[in-house]
Design a protein around this nucleic acid. Structure first.
Lengths: 342, 342
DNA sequence: TATTAGCACTCAGGATGGTTGAGTGCTAAT
DNA sequence: ATTAGCACTCAACCATCCTGAGTGCTAATA
């Protein structure tokens, strides 16, 4: 993107800000009046025409003001937006909104989503990613019925997964305990991915069946861990977004709800932000989020990244407000999880 | 409700059916033409006026046809609706939609919701109720960090719950195993409610502390099981409902989404149907479901009721279609769970 | 040369009014 | 008891007009 001269930048910024505030097209007169760069509406119009030429603005129809295009927002965010830091007071306030003592992972995530949504007035998202990326801590088996077992495995970060598997023969609880003891000793500290590797390798070597218990243990844990568990996504405050004027028409509402319902689009985006550092901003049809933006950040404990959170709002979102909230929340959550981990 | 004479019944039924099909007010002419009770529009009008007087019909404005009121629907459902049985072919088809092998409880529930929604074209609900009503099967402890434990407990029906608790002292894994062994022996076969009772009683008698292990076991399990775990509700296909003409206005959409988001209203209703037998129908502002109805049924295995499922749709729903689907699905799910339980 | 005043033009949105058609209630005739 | 007939009502649709906000262009200005 070519650099803009200062005047153009100022005017673009003014337009974006006004539009964020009002959700309505902004006209040259309004700009020249409300912002005090001593310029007549006519001059402003000239600049606006240039900006439109460059694809940063557009007008819904001839006699309406201009609104920023996606590209316009992009430019604004990349070059003009300055994120203010939260004041200590705000940080304190934010910190006190979050109270997680005694909550288990899932509940914390849900609560974080709710609070994010409440603070931003948009939809809050929290994703706990695939189990595969976590570190194995413990596995337990519960016999449900003949040949049917419930497997429960716990990650280093405190995530719990359970799954029902079928064994070809019945196994009693005493034996199951031995098996889990064996596995817990053997697999401790590996990531689930490593565990899978190890199991696969050992099972190939094990064809000789010289140790019945061990063979059983391997095949059971293999069955338990083999397939992917999906990312878990918590969404809160969808209906808050429906209050926004850009979603006032039935059609737009429907589309929005569908987006949230399928979750896939959101998970993909959060997955992407998973691997990045710091706050990410995704804009509009960047990826099937027509008219919306996603502000996200990942969180982690000292054992590594464990998830991502964020806020989805209309593209016309108050970024300078929401970005620091998301950022700080991610840090807070990271710290909490760290404390929990040890 | 006073009994209606046959003609009135016929006409009411015709109106309800036409309205269900079209979602539009139905007029006297349409009735007298489409249904062949040789009556002129004028006669139909007379009857309609009576029905309106009784509060079973109303007209949105003078020159529109009539639509059934809530009371009208209620009467229709109570007295006129006849539920056809599913044909064997339909049953077979339904049965083959449901494939749950190797799925764990949560996934089954989610899948059932999705399928219910798909079949009915409305929103599908499945609720797994409070843990308290289930029978204890097994408890396991995992040490997370100093003094912090993860408790996992499994019900007879295969539900898994986990929770983080803090102990006042650190306990190592060997000791935890002993504790869980002890508890598993001691609490086997009781409902969670009974378990709570028992624990409370024993803890009172235990002040003497003559057995350290046992005391610890009691206090841990008490902490783990003391507080209520909420009902879990799975909702699928919200956006399908938005397609219905009655929710075409932004306002109605918003309200609907809010209802689904809070979940509370739905949980309350399903909770109610939990205890009842067979299919239940809840209509409209019966309970804060303005414009909607809920058709629900509970499911159970031979150890007792474990949940409820249903379909939420516009009050103008095709009951004769949806009721048997819900009914049969509940039976199917019950059977599946029975098979799983032993 | 950059800015601005002035002016003609555009167009969405609101107000107004007429027409249509579906539906009603009432009355008198059957 | 039923129904034909008729006057009446009213939402929905359409065309039309008007207004005001906003534009682009051009010529005058600093």
């Amino acid at each position: 993107m070519a650099e803009l001269n200062e005047r153009s930048q100022n005017i673009l910024e003014a337009i974006v800000k006004d539009y964020i505030a009002s959700a309505e097209p902004v006209g040259s007169r309004a700009i020249s009046r409300r912002h005090h760069f001593n310029l007549s509406p006519a001059s402003v119009r000239n600049v606006m025409a240039d900006l439109e030429e460059m694809g940063l603005l557009c007008s819904p129809h001839t006699s309406a003001g201009r609104i920023p295009t996606e590209k316009g927002f992009q430019y604004y965010i990349d070059s003009l937006l300055q994120i203010r830091d939260l004041s200590d007071k705000e940080k304190k306030q934010l910190r006190s909104s979050y109270r997680f003592s005694g909550m288990k992972m899932e509940d914390i995530m849900q609560e974080v989503g709710r609070i994010l949504s409440g603070l931003s007035k948009y939809a809050g998202l929290v994703m706990v990613p695939k189990f595969a990326t976590t570190v194995f801590r413990q596995i337990e088996f519960v016999r449900l019925s003949y040949g049917r077992l419930l497997v429960i495995y716990v990650s280093e970060t405190g995530l719990v997964q359970n799954k029902v598997i079928s064994a070809d023969t019945d196994i009693d609880q005493r034996q199951l305990e031995k098996i889990s003891n064996y596995l817990n000793r053997e697999l401790n500290g590996l990531t689930i991915l490593q565990v899978r590797e190890k199991l696969k390798k050992e099972m190939q070597e094990e064809i000789s069946l010289y140790d019945q218990l061990r063979t059983k243990a391997l095949s059971l844990s293999f069955a338990a861990l083999q397939d992917e568990v999906e990312d878990q996504l918590f969404v809160a405050g969808t209906s808050l977004m429906l209050e926004q004027p850009e979603f006032s028409s039935p059609d737009q509402m429907r589309r929005l709800i569908q987006t949230f319902e399928s979750k896939k689009i959101l998970i993909d985006l959060l997955d992407r932000s998973q691997s990045a550092q710091g706050v990410q901003i995704f804009i509009g049809s960047d990826v099937d989020l027509k008219g919306c933006s996603l502000i996200s950040a990942n969180f982690s404990n000292r054992k590594g990244a464990i998830g991502a959170l964020g806020v989805v709002g209309p593209m016309r979102m108050d970024y300078s407000q929401v970005v620091p909230i998301v950022d700080f929340t991610a840090q807070l959550v990271s710290r909490v999880l760290d404390r929990e981990a040890e």
